[in-house]
């Protein structure tokens, strides 16, 4: 019986999307990420958990090279997406970020209309040749982010006028509009109320059919609810990485167990 399940899972095994090896990050003199290696699968939700300051957000920002915008950050090691080294000098970080979308902790809609917010990425990257195509991309993205019905009559109104939960879903729509392959989410629900959080979580579950989603979260319940894989970070090191169910029910490392039972954090 047990063997049967293992075989089933093996056939269901998804290919690796992101592969990081021996990644180290320094912020000035601070060694923020210490030798982290992890394989993130395609069409899967992977959760990064760990106490504050453990480096999970920093590691997330390595995957789309957002740390490049910080002068004092230094990154060593090897991160590959679909086998391609993203820190190779030939790779344009701007192009990479179009492929690896990001949703931030605080909803940050641009001071533009709802339509222009979503159309921002497609316009920059020239994804639509005609106005009709652009309209279609915007509608599709807003539908995917489960916010179309709420905003379809007010597309020309400012995105900043929406409620917090709507703003965050607008930001998700904005991120998916550029057709990324990977979606990084840095505590996307920390500024939201429980209802908006539930909406976003439902959305994440749908998004995994098309994308590899990596989510940083402080809420262990959220990690358990939305993710298939979980990585536990502590003091800049990756302590444990595995099936979400395994991490929460039978963690191998004592630090993981302490964290999920609330003894460290």
């Amino acid at each position: 019986m047990n063997d049967m399940r293992r075989i089933e899972r093996a056939t269901d095994m998804k290919e690796t999307k992101i592969s990081a090896r021996h990644v180290n990050v320094h912020y000035g003199d601070t060694h923020a990420i210490k030798d982290v290696s992890v394989e993130i699968q395609d069409k899967t939700v992977t959760a990064f958990i760990g106490p504050s300051g453990c480096g999970k957000s920093t590691f997330l920002r390595c995957i789309n090279r957002m740390n490049d915008t910080i002068d004092i950050a230094r990154i060593d090691g090897d991160i590959r997406i679909d086998g391609e080294d993203i820190y190779d000098p030939k790779v344009d970080p701007v192009q990479l970020r179009a492929k690896v979308g990001m949703v931030f902790q605080k909803p940050n809609p641009f001071p533009k209309s709802i339509f222009d917010n979503v159309a921002y990425g497609p316009r920059i990257h020239g994804l639509a040749r005609t106005k009709a195509e652009l309209d279609e991309i915007v509608e599709k993205s807003l539908r995917r982010a489960a916010i179309w019905d709420e905003v379809k009559d007010r597309l020309q109104q400012p995105g900043t006028g929406l409620s917090g939960g709507q703003q965050q879903r607008l930001c998700i729509a904005r991120a998916v509009a550029t057709e990324p392959e990977v979606l990084l989410m840095d505590e996307p629900c920390s500024a939201l109320d429980p209802i908006a959080t539930a909406q976003v979580e439902e959305l994440i579950d749908e998004l995994k059919q098309n994308y590899s989603v990596v989510i940083v979260t402080h809420s262990m319940q959220q990690a358990a609810r939305v993710s298939q894989k979980t990585a536990f970070f502590h003091l800049g090191t990756l302590v444990e990485y595995g099936e979400t169910g395994d991490i929460f029910t039978k963690p191998e490392d004592s630090r993981t167990e302490s964290y999920i039972t609330g003894r460290i954090g």
Partner: peptide
């Protein structure tokens, strides 16, 4: 706010864009 710039960079916009 820096979060607006991050949001734009995160979508693959260049600095001048």
């Amino acid at each position: 706010p820096q979060s607006l710039r991050d949001g734009s960079y995160g979508l693959g916009a260049t600095q001048s864009e």
